[in-house]
Design a protein around this nucleic acid. Structure first.
Length: 756
DNA sequence: CCTCCCAAGGTTTTT
DNA sequence: CCTTGGGAGG
């Protein structure tokens, strides 16, 4: 048993104050790496062990499942099993927990479905078609974000419309919003925003319910408070309305989700919203050396609206930041690769290293180069497991079993796998449903009562039989067996079995993994119904096993966007693509607010580093398949020269370009902007030509080796034989024959080819 | 109804 | 560069 008093001795005075100020509103401004999680867990332990608070009266809210799981585990470890009664969960799962108990008061059924981003898009698409609005005029994407905006600001469709005034587009969006809400209701579905909103609505309409919950939660903690949106703020305010013991922890400088509705004013104006609030600043950083901290501080200092903090550390100055400027993104990747080798020769583990970038698309080249050099790596992000098509299709069937009103699920699978029920047939069903005031699913199940045109009658009938079969088995079988039965009976698996490509194999494996996930869930929660499994996966996006496997990064370099790096730390960080237009990103650099968010992003990235921080930019960058000259990021200019290594060094050395020909003209004497910057801050510019031999990437060597009759493997087309090689250098074009895909012309430098 | 081809467009993503 | 969606043709 660990002794909490001993543990508490390890807290610094400010941390201790944050942990022990239990009464009244408290704002803890926790700088990057200041031991925030320690404070949160010790605070809970202090409540339970020192003050004798019943864990049942404690609510701790985080944003991610991972954070919630970690906190829960630490609390259990410190306080023992009794602490299991405390609610430690994400905003969304706390709300679902409440809604599963209370939502019938709002006229939804308990078996409601949660619509994720994809479902929302499908629903909006459907509405646009019904309303004959051209999706080109107003994109689904835009509408989705506008609706979410409106919801976060707690505007009903009617209120949103009023706000729209005479603006035609906004008016249209308001109309779609209104329909969208109607559809959610009739589908018995809630989107993510609704999970929060419906709880607020419940509390506002039924004061007795609010009283039950607000009396229960005597002590409330909210983590990552800078990421809360307006609705979440209101929810917290309601929950804390009885006792007022609300502790929020966050860092306004790390607010990077504004574009998702996070409202930074929540944290900036906490003291105004909760007048007698106390404030504790945690400014001692336990992560980074002072050179890194001072550089990060200097950058973030350029932002206007913020709570001043000055992070410091007792780790000494440490190494200077390494600022590198290279010719292009390929040189950048190769530089990073070499530097990783150097670091590792000096005793660094691969897992101590991270490559951070602004856009996911930047990962591709690093992947290629690292693959060629044999450095193990892991790329974070990408499609989450439950977001994969083959998994979602299977889940849609499950959803339909639980909630027959889920029209999005029905439309998704009615013709998957292909069974000859196309748009025209669905229209016909829709007409009948409208005429008889029934749902689509209702009409299908009662298909014998209706007249269908031509061939569709038989097909609908077959589908109805399939559905009835599934429904009865869903009741009879345990859920894991049902999952297996479903995948077989529907033909979802056969679809991929008969297609013998690598991709189909992957998809089959994912379907098998889904069966495993259901089985594991069934073992863990033998009493749980299918509906609970569905809620669970809607809120987690990744099965537990996969989360763990993903979390085990021993021995791999970590590649991820800066956004996904928040909350993590690495001994060495490569912050790449430090160029205007990329970071800060073009579309974000337009207004001051967005620029400040980009700068916070830069701050987050820099403060991930413990010992070594590389800031890397290039002269030319290919983005979206187009190579363009680039200029160094303004953020680089905000880093004081004396903290950087290369800035102090000699003037640039001019070398030849790494590529001979391009589709744009280099102005005589080079790019004016680059020259200007070079004069201001002399830089060492490195060029990689691939001609220097052994150390260079295998990719470049391979490029030269293509010859006719050679066997190659293509990422998508599989194995093939080179028929001819034309041109050289960047212009080299290969004609390759693939046994089942035919003859392809491939540009050698781009094609994902491997010589075999 | 399905499949193939071409044009357009393309942040960041805890839930 | 890649993915995606809409339109034409089978």
């Amino acid at each position: 048993m660990s002794n909490p008093f001993l543990d508490q001795a390890k807290l610094n005075p400010m941390q201790r104050k944050a942990a022990e100020t239990t009464e009244g509103p408290l704002l803890v401004l926790a700088g990057a790496g200041s031991g925030k999680t320690r404070v949160l867990t010790h605070r809970v332990a202090h409540l339970i062990l020192d003050m004798g608070v019943n864990p049942w009266n404690i609510l701790a809210i985080t944003f991610t499942n991972k954070a919630a799981a970690e906190m829960k585990e630490r609390i259990l470890h410190m306080c023992g099993e009794t602490a299991a009664d405390a609610w430690v969960s994400t905003f969304h799962s706390a709300c679902v927990r409440i809604l599963r108990r209370e939502i019938e008061a709002l006229d939804f059924s308990k078996d409601f479905t949660i619509y994720d981003d994809d479902d929302q898009g499908k629903l909006i698409d459907q509405i646009l078609k019904q309303k004959q609005i051209d999706a080109k005029q107003i994109s689904v994407r835009e509408i989705k974000s506008k609706i979410s905006d409106a919801k976060n600001r707690m505007l009903t469709p009617a209120e949103y419309r009023k706000e729209a005034g005479a603006d035609f587009r906004t008016e249209k969006i308001a109309e779609v919003y209104s329909d969208y809400e109607k559809h959610l209701k009739s589908n018995n579905a809630l989107d993510f925003d609704d999970l929060i909103l419906k709880v607020i609505e419940l509390f506002q309409k039924f004061p007795a319910t609010l009283e039950r919950y607000s009396k229960r939660f005597r002590y409330i903690l909210v983590d990552e408070y800078q990421d809360t949106n307006h609705a979440q703020y209101i929810l917290v305010e309601l929950l804390a309305s009885n006792w007022g013991n609300l502790c929020v922890v966050g860092d306004d400088d790390q607010s990077i989700y504004g574009w998702r509705g996070a409202d930074i004013t929540n944290i900036l104006e906490f003291e105004r919203s909760f007048p007698n609030a106390q404030v504790v600043k945690l400014e001692q950083n336990y992560r980074s050396t002072n050179n890194i901290l001072n550089a990060a501080n200097a950058v973030i200092d350029h932002n206007e609206g913020r709570k001043r903090k000055q992070l410091w550390s007792d780790k000494g100055e440490g190494d200077k930041l390494q600022v590198e400027h290279l010719s292009d993104e390929k040189a950048e990747a190769m530089f990073v690769q070499e530097e990783i080798n150097t670091l590792c020769r000096a005793g660094c583990q691969y897992s101590d290293i991270a490559i951070l970038y602004r856009l996911n698309s930047q990962s591709r080249l690093f992947e290629e180069i690292l693959l060629g050099s044999g450095i193990p790596y892991k790329i974070y992000g990408g499609q989450p497991f439950y977001g994969r098509k083959e998994v979602r299709d299977a889940i849609a069937y499950l959803r339909l079993m639980v909630n027959p009103n889920d029209e999005i699920a029905l439309r998704r699978i009615i013709n998957v796998p292909k069974r000859g029920i196309g748009a025209a047939t669905i229209d016909e069903i829709q007409q009948l449903a409208n005429a008889h005031d029934d749902t689509l699913f209702g009409v299908i199940l009662d298909c014998d009562q209706y007249q269908f045109s031509g061939r569709s009658a038989g097909r609908i009938r077959d589908f109805a039989v399939l559905m009835e079969d599934l429904i009865s088995q869903s009741i009879l079988l345990p859920m894991d067996e049902f999952m297996k039965f479903l995948l077989e009976r529907t033909g979802l698996m056969d679809e991929y079995r008969k297609e013998r490509t690598d991709e189909a194999k992957d998809r089959l494996e994912n379907q098998e993994e889904l069966i495993n996930a259901v089985a594991r869930y069934h073992v863990d929660y033998p009493e749980a119904a299918l509906s609970e499994f569905l809620i669970n996966i809607a809120l987690v996006a990744e099965p537990e096993e996969r989360l763990l496997a993903g979390g085990d990064t021993k021995g791999t370099v970590n590649l991820m966007t800066i956004h996904s790096a928040k909350g993590l730390e690495f001994k060495a960080v490569f912050l790449v693509g430090m160029e205007e237009g990329l970071f800060p990103l073009n579309r974000s650099a337009t207004d001051e607010q967005q620029l400040e968010e980009e700068r916070r992003l830069c701050y987050v990235a820099m403060t991930r580093a413990m010992e070594k921080l590389y800031l890397i930019s290039t002269s030319y960058r290919m983005l979206y398949g187009e190579t363009r000259p680039s200029t160094r990021s303004r953020f680089l200019a905000e880093v004081p020269c004396e903290l950087c290594e290369s800035k102090m060094e000699q003037a640039q050395e001019r070398t030849f370009m790494s590529r001979q020909k391009r589709d744009w003209e280099v102005p005589p004497g080079g790019n004016a902007n680059i020259e200007k910057l070079h004069i201001k801050t002399p830089l060492r510019t490195k060029y990689y030509t691939g001609a220097t031999g052994v150390d260079d990437s295998a990719i470049l060597q391979r490029k030269r080796q293509y010859e006719p009759a050679m066997k190659v493997r293509h990422k998508h087309f599989g194995e093939g034989t080179i028929i001819s090689v034309k041109g050289n250098g960047d212009d080299m074009v290969l004609k390759v024959a693939f046994p089942d895909k035919g003859i392809k012309d491939l540009v050698a430098i781009y094609a994902p080819l491997e010589i075999i």
